[in-house]
């Protein structure tokens, strides 16, 4: 169940260009947080920013009740977050949204495909998959070499391929180019990244079963305001913040 938490920043690190890793301490247990879920963060102390910012959960250290988030500074909200110091507080709703349904899936081998700031939630997922004895192959895509992060962290969990759009690091091109070059075998795929990337992946991998996590400008973050929606294959819309952000790739229609 979603709660409103007052989190304390215990670690703050710039891990790539405009990309920050925060460790935040939770007073309550973190055991209910599942891979793919997000935290909805209040920006500022007053009412200048009326909308919270959804940030995906990159990892959870349940023993120490620490939640790790990674974000890129793209606007006022994320810039504010990047300027917060260790010891500072974060007002967040958590855990929000759906998760990758790995407890209901049987598999030997999973393919993870992340693009840019869609990479973080796949790390928590990869750790949980490895814990379950699933082999993990990861394809990570970034714009350019200076944006690359978590390559080593994913390497500790399985095979990793990195692509950059401009060819400045790893394979040159998109994650889908890497997929076609490597042709890894897998039972299920899990992906998070910009919509054009997800569209490419779900098109190229349409014979396979997979789960994708979507990003959208959100309002309430709890399913009440109908701001963040995605067309459903059954007609109408699904609410990304509540019924997503993780969807079976075959249940939603990407623009």
């Amino acid at each position: 169940m979603i709660r409103k938490a007052n989190l304390t920043i215990v670690h703050h690190e710039k891990i790539a260009e405009s990309t920050f890793l925060l460790h935040v301490l939770s007073e309550a247990s973190t055991l209910d947080i599942k891979p793919g879920q997000f935290i909805h963060i209040k920006i500022g102390q007053d009412h200048s920013h009326v909308l919270r910012r959804p940030i995906s959960i990159a990892d959870v250290d349940h023993t120490n009740k620490i939640i790790k988030i990674i974000f890129k500074t793209v606007g006022e909200g994320t810039s504010y977050l990047s300027q917060q110091k260790v010891g500072g507080k974060i007002d967040a709703l958590l855990p929000c949204g759906s998760s990758y349904p790995i407890d209901n899936l049987t598999m030997d081998h999973a393919l993870l495909i992340g693009g840019g700031i869609g990479v973080p939630p796949l790390y928590y997922l990869a750790k949980q998959l490895v814990e379950k004895g699933v082999s993990v192959t990861t394809i990570l895509g970034f714009q350019t070499a200076s944006h690359v992060f978590f390559e080593q962290e994913f390497k500790a969990l399985g095979d990793v391929y990195v692509a950059t759009n401009d060819g400045s690091y790893g394979h040159s091109g998109f994650v889908t180019d890497v997929y076609h070059a490597v042709k890894p075998s897998f039972d299920y795929y899990f992906s998070c990244g910009p919509t054009p990337m997800l569209k490419g992946i779900t098109t190229d991998l349409k014979e396979k079963q997979g789960y994708i996590s979507l990003e959208e400008r959100m309002g309430c973050g709890v399913g009440a305001c109908f701001a963040c929606v995605i067309p459903s294959v059954n007609g109408g819309y699904k609410k990304i913040c509540q019924q997503g952000p993780v969807f079976d790739a075959s249940e939603v229609i990407l623009a």
Binding site: H47, S48, H49, V50, L51, E76, G77, E216, R217, M218, G219, C225, F226, A227, C228, V229, I230, G236, Y237
Partner: peptide
């Protein structure tokens, strides 16, 4: 079914919506 997304944008001490 409402409008296409994005449906919200933050403004100074406010927000725009077109659900």
């Amino acid at each position: 079914y409402g409008n296409p997304t994005p449906r919200v944008a933050e403004t100074s001490a406010g927000m725009l919506n077109a659900i």
